[in-house]
Design a protein around this nucleic acid. Structure first.
Length: 236
DNA sequence: GTCTGCAAAACTCGTTGGTT
DNA sequence: AACCAACGAGTTTTGCAGAC
């Protein structure tokens, strides 16, 4: 299933200022612009599969993706919800590994693909760019450590509270100021982040609703009381 | 008591075809 | 082209039994 080719130039890109490419100079940016290809993916389409070889990196222009790993029992564990401005696939490429995860569009997604050769040239030439990648990789390592601890030590109820707060941060980036933040994810995806069964997530969401911590409208979830969710999640 | 898995019912959403 | 109803697929919810 392939996406539809589209055209986005870096200087008119809406996320350029928050992307990893913000430190590049004009000539470096021109080169990326020349070599990259941009694609629109529909919901459910796959950008890259686990255990395939990276041929380049993906810069998300618009939309959200779930990044997940499939376990031995066939169940998916969602590692990350990637959003506009995020860069995907560079760690596996730099370490010359296969992709450890799959990236799938959660909605209409616009993505720019930068071939490996051009990306590696940038790493050779731009110190600022390398530092930016290093910072990002270290940050993610820290996040993963936190996630592992959360999954291992917290109850499902606590994990769901932590997950809702994390998703609120992800979704508020795309929400105009003043508007209510809506987390738009299936219950199954939510369960795959929390690491539990869909039914358990639905039951706990029902409890959170009763406690007026959240409100739901169809599949959409609105966090009403983030401070109380912090307490429920035992976050200090 | 907490959580999971299964099954069934209820609900939502996207697609399709007909009508205006 | 716009609107609407019907339909089917997918998703959500609920109840129950059982494992830990």
């Amino acid at each position: 299933m392939r996406g539809r080719r589209i055209s986005i130039t870096c200087d008119e890109c809406s996320v350029h200022k928050i992307s990893k490419f913000k430190s590049l100079n004009d000539s470096e940016l021109d080169r990326i612009n020349y070599h990259k290809s941009c694609t629109a993916y529909k919901k459910g389409q796959i950008l890259f599969h686990e255990d395939t070889r990276p041929l380049g990196v993906f810069c998300i222009n618009a939309g959200k993706l779930k990044v997940y790993k499939t376990g031995d029992d066939g169940k998916d564990q969602i590692i990350q919800i990637a959003k506009s401005g995020d860069l995907l696939g560079y760690r596996a490429m730099i370490s010359e590994d296969l992709y450890p995860v799959t990236a799938e569009a959660l909605e209409e997604v616009k993505v720019c693909f930068i071939p490996k050769s051009e990306f590696m040239k940038l790493i050779d030439e731009s110190h600022d760019f390398v530092m930016m990648l290093l910072k990002d990789a270290c940050q993610e390592l820290g996040d993963m450590t936190g996630m592992m601890t959360t999954l291992a030590q917290k109850s499902v109820r606590e994990r769901l509270a932590v997950t809702l707060l994390m998703l609120k941060r992800v979704y508020e980036a795309d929400t105009p100021e003043g508007e209510e933040i809506e987390i738009n994810l299936t219950r199954e995806d939510l369960a795959n982040i929390v690491g539990t069964a869909t039914e358990t997530v639905i039951r706990l969401l029902h409890d959170f609703k009763e406690e007026e911590l959240i409100r739901t409208s169809g599949r959409k979830i609105m966090v009403l009381e983030p401070e109380r969710l912090v307490k429920v999640g035992n976050i200090y």
